[in-house]
Amino acid sequence: MKKVSYAAFGGPDVLDLIDAEEPHAGPGHIRVSVRAAGVNPVDWRLREGQVLGAHPVELPAGVGLDAAGVVDEVGEGVTDVAVGDRVFGEGADTYAEFAVLSAWAPMPDGLSFAEAAGYPSVVETALRIIDEVGVRPGQKLLVGGASGGVGSAVLQIARERGVTVIGTAGAANQDYLRELGALATTYGDGWVERVRGLGPVDAALDLAGSGVIPDLVALTGDPAKVVTIADLGAPEFGVRFSGVAGSVPDALAEAASLIARGRLHIPVEKSYALTEAAAAHADSRAGHTRGRRVIVI
């Protein structure tokens, strides 16, 4: 089968499309014929040799956590899916023609494979960091870098929980944030004053890693009310860096419920072929995404 792999840490150019042996589903796992794989920042962070404490990598390594596809192999003890079912979920080395998943759920009706592949990790991350930052109904949450996949999920899930959200993003994404129910403002010079003009901030999430942690602490008044998924230096300011996943099956179930009820939608901004994985990583690292980027097999 074809699979994206890298034999050394480095830039996008270390990615190769190779011929590899097909993986097989062990006990409690399933294998899917991958139709689409989500592109997540953790993919290129691992390729660069970052966050290895939380996610050890043995070289050569495959790429990708999220996938949507058709079940073609069921491991021992798995009873909730059968060969031929359409699922989305999380596993390992999903930039490939076949991948083994450790967590999955039936694909919600009406979703394409490309759309479905964009949900697993971002919804798990969104649910986790909303809980970790401790924001409650009736409070106001500031989300820095709000237009990407995780931000799109945070805005909609927080809105569903009765939380008012202020989102920062580039000028081109202001209407997009408003469509998701957020109070929108741009980052850049004067952004702190613009946020203050929208009212007191009870908690804040940093999704972009753009060096704003001290400002977020000042806006909330408490480093315990700030969580980042993007700034590895945040603990120096007493701020939590959240990088360890919670329950992926629970997150997938909640995602499927929200999608089915029309309460969650994350658009696919751009799709790539397996041969374009390096370009997908370069674009993801550059930021300014509206929604998700996916690899389509």
Rank of each mutant, 00 (worst) to 15 (best):
G246T: 04
V239T: 05
G211D: 06
V217A: 02
D202Y: 01
F237V: 06
P200G: 00
D206V: 00
S210H: 13
A218T: 15
L232W: 12
P235N: 05
D222Q: 07
V226H: 02
V244A: 13
P235Y: 03
L207H: 03
A245D: 14
A203P: 14
G238K: 10
G211W: 08
A208T: 13
L232V: 13
G199I: 05
G233W: 11
I213T: 02
K225N: 13
I229W: 14
F241N: 07
V239K: 01
L216C: 04
L232M: 08
A204S: 13
T228I: 08
F241W: 13
D202Q: 03
D231S: 15
P200N: 01
A203M: 12
T220K: 12
D231L: 11
S210A: 13
G246Q: 06
V226E: 00
R194S: 02
P214M: 14
L219M: 10
V227W: 00
V239E: 01
S210Q: 10
A234T: 07
V217K: 01
D202S: 04
G197E: 07
V244G: 11
G246W: 06
A204Y: 09
G199C: 09
G211A: 09
A203R: 04
L198I: 07
D202W: 01
V212L: 15
L232H: 09
P235K: 04
G209W: 06
L205A: 03
F241D: 06
I229M: 15
G221D: 12
I229Y: 15
G209T: 09
V201R: 00
I229L: 15
V195T: 03
R196K: 07
I229V: 15
D222H: 07
P235W: 03
P214Y: 10
A208Q: 15
A203D: 05
L198V: 04
R240H: 12
A224E: 02
E236N: 12
A218R: 14
G221C: 11
T220Q: 11
D215S: 15
A218D: 14
D215F: 10
G199A: 07
G233E: 13
A204R: 02
